[in-house]
Design a protein around this nucleic acid. Structure first.
Length: 682
DNA sequence: TTAGGGTTAG
């Protein structure tokens, strides 16, 4: 709506305001000028509103909301204003909206040589190379085939999309190349891993600025050629923050933390990307505590750094992997306080984090709070429910998803089949295995076969599982052989177990452990010794078991027979009490899965009784009694729960009337009042 | 009178 000015502002006022525009560069100043222009009624002058839009859309301000509000009040904006607005959307990572605006523009104007580069950049951000090609055709028809900026943005689009031949074709046709064009192409070769061509172009370049050096450096570091990257880094005439970051990121990705930290320590300045690179590097290399530690350090050391989606992507994954619920709640709380939204991939990761940290309730509530639910959100919650043994809910949500018009993909079916296999729903698994192809047109991948095989194995249908593996059209991987071997161990079927183990050992040396467990369960102690000899010879160690439990922010970790804890005395008193109560409840130890051959049954029992999860549960029972006797005991374990511990934990949940939630290496067990959510299939 | 293309995290 335009408000007519009562009195035309004097030209001296307008002149003064325009001069203020050129000296402004902060959002605060922009807003002040915005107010001033409204108060003095200069806003309706196109010279003023145009300058204001330019200010809002240019760096470093780039404020999309204010820009759009100005744009919307201008009647019939000129082509440059449309161009600014499109660029602002692209710069704010809203390229879909930028393209939408571009198609609106087409009904008013013909795009010019300023419009097209922005649109190509948007296409490149969206990986929309087909659309880019179409608009490339349009730009030729409109006579912009030889415009330097149009050509340069096309080189960039094709480079980033990996179409180096096409990029090169445009590049070769250019009569007026500048550094930007060269850099686009060098970067294209570098990011596609063609370091040779990147280097060749770099050598041919008439003049180098820091972009070219950094692109080459990035190419080397991305392809893992860190010495070559370091060489470029040392040789470049002026290093900037971007080159430091690229180098640090290369080292972090390669797991060379020492070199990365050395650079991190010595660099002249840091930005958010520096910190994010380090956090992501720790996270992908499995050093979750350090990733979290860097985040805390950043908050402490860097005043005014506002963590963004990239920060949280690494951080949420790190917390999910650590499986500590209090950390999950803390990071989520931090995000809520700081206005980080849950749509898109962040929502997906949050759901996954809560599931992996043992609170499927919080995972579900995050899912429910997301207004525009995308496929990723549905998949994440379905996978989570499966992990927690809630197959009925997973199946129900799947139906809701389909009814809401979201088309399931391969991942959705992995989640669904996995949920079925975890509770032993073989018939449901079969039916969805069939339906996914017949009704939804989703191609079966090895994971889908894996889930069905697993469901068959968990329910003891080993022969059928074996036949299925032999008939399936894809080559079985180690996960599938491992399912069969685990199933054989559970059903104590030595023949099928050996069959699986023989096919497995080449793919996965750690498979000797379940084989040895199988022999132990079958009482074939000579075979156990043979396998253990073999493991020794090949240098394969059985991963030591541990369990952890968190209390008031502190992680307490136990190994078998642990006596190192500060409250060891109390823990062992509790263990004794547990033992007596279990005996009263009629528990008889299941000693079949004791790996070592111990002659006396009594000793076998003693070994079982000191399993790390029992120590953790004992600690949970004594440490949380005074605070809140009703909160569940949450234990994280690195290995699969053994038969005996599983039945013991069921009994303990009844005896002490406490929910006990155990995460093992593949799923969750919710123990309550004497039974477990896995229905004893695991 | 206002506008465009190239480097690092995800």
């Amino acid at each position: 709506m335009q408000i007519p000015a009562a009195v035309a502002p004097p030209s001296s006022v307008v002149h003064h305001q325009l001069s203020l525009f050129s000296s402004s560069e902060t959002i605060k100043e922009a807003k002040q000028l915005h107010c001033l222009s409204l108060k003095t009624a200069t806003f309706n002058l196109s010279s003023v509103s145009s300058r204001l839009l330019s200010l809002y859309t240019s760096s470093p301000i780039n404020d999309l909301l204010y820009a759009r509000s100005v744009f919307d009040t201008i009647q019939s904006p000129s082509l440059p204003l449309w161009n600014m607005m499109i660029k602002c959307y692209v710069e704010n990572h809203r390229s879909h909206d930028a393209i939408r605006l571009f198609s609106d523009l087409l009904s008013e104007f013909s795009p010019d040589n300023f419009t097209l580069p922005c649109v190509f950049k948007g296409c490149s951000r969206l990986c929309a190379v087909k659309e880019g090609e179409q608009i490339h055709g349009v730009s030729i028809k409109l006579g912009f085939a030889l415009d330097k900026f149009v050509q340069s943005s096309l080189v960039s689009l094709y480079s980033k999309s990996g179409l180096l031949d096409r990029a090169r074709k445009v590049f070769d046709k250019m009569s007026d190349r500048d550094l930007v064009t060269w850099n686009s192409l060098i970067d294209g070769y570098a990011r596609s891993g063609d370091v040779e061509n990147a280097e060749k172009m770099f050598d041919e370049i008439p003049e180098r600025d820091s972009y070219s050096w950094t692109s080459l450096l990035h190419g080397f570091s991305k392809s893992g050629k860190l010495e070559a990257a370091r060489d470029v880094f040392e040789k470049m005439p002026t290093k900037n923050l971007v080159s430091w970051n690229a180098m640090i990121n290369g080292y972090m990705r390669a797991g060379d933390f020492e070199s990365a930290c050395e650079l991190f320590k010595n660099m002249p300045e840091r930005n958010l990307i520096t910190w994010n690179s380090v956090m992501a590097g720790f996270e992908v290399n499995g050093r979750f505590d350090e990733a979290l530690g860097m985040f805390l350090r950043m908050l402490k050391e860097e005043d005014g750094f506002k963590p963004n989606n990239a920060t949280f992507t690494s951080l949420i994954s790190a917390v999910a992997a650590s499986a500590i619920l209090s950390r999950a709640r803390w990071i989520h709380g931090y995000m809520v306080k700081n206005g980080i939204g849950t749509d898109g991939v962040i929502g997906t990761l949050l759901i996954e984090m809560y599931s992996k940290c043992g609170s499927i309730e919080s995972a579900t509530s995050v899912f429910e709070s997301i207004r525009r639910k995308k496929l990723g959100h549905w998949n994440s919650v379905i996978v989570g429910l499966g992990m927690h043994g809630k197959a009925d809910e997973a199946l129900e949500l799947f139906k809701e998803m389909v009814e809401s018009g979201v088309k399931p993909n391969a991942v959705a079916f992995v989640g669904l089949l996995n949920a079925c296999s975890h509770v032993g729903y073989v018939e449901e698994a079969r039916s969805y295995f069939d339906l996914m192809v017949r009704e939804y047109g989703v191609e079966r991948e090895i994971e889908h076969y894996g889930c069905l095989v697993d469901a068959l194995c968990r329910t003891g249908q080993l022969q059928e599982a074996k036949t299925m593996i032999e008939k399936m059209p894809v080559r079985p991987n180690k996960v599938i052989w491992m399912s069969l071997l685990r199933g054989a161990k559970k059903s104590v079927d030595v023949e099928i177990g050996e069959y699986a183990a023989h096919r497995l050992v080449d793919l996965a040396p750690e498979s000797y452990v379940p084989l040895s467990n199988l022999y132990a369960a079958a009482g074939k102690w000579e075979r156990v010794s043979e396998v253990r000899e073999m493991m020794k010879k090949k240098g394969i160690k059985k991963e030591a078991g541990w369990s952890l439990i968190e209390r008031e922010g502190v992680i307490h970790r136990f190994i078998v027979g642990d006596r190192s804890h500060r409250e060891t005395e109390e823990i062992y008193v509790k263990m004794k009490e547990m033992r007596e109560k279990l005996r009263e409840a009629g528990h008889v130890a299941d000693t079949r899965q004791v790996l070592l051959r111990i002659e006396e049954e009594k000793d076998k029992e003693a070994e079982l009784e000191l399993h790390s999860e029992r120590l953790a549960i004992a600690y949970g029972l004594i440490s949380s009694k005074s605070k809140n006797g009703k909160s569940p005991i949450r234990v994280v374990k690195n290995l699969t729960v053994c038969n005996d511990c599983h039945s013991v934990t069921k009994l303990l949940s009844r005896i002490y009337q406490r929910d006990i939630i155990v995460r093992d290496n593949s799923r969750f067990h919710h123990f309550r009042d004497g039974s477990c959510s896995c229905n004893d299939f695991w």
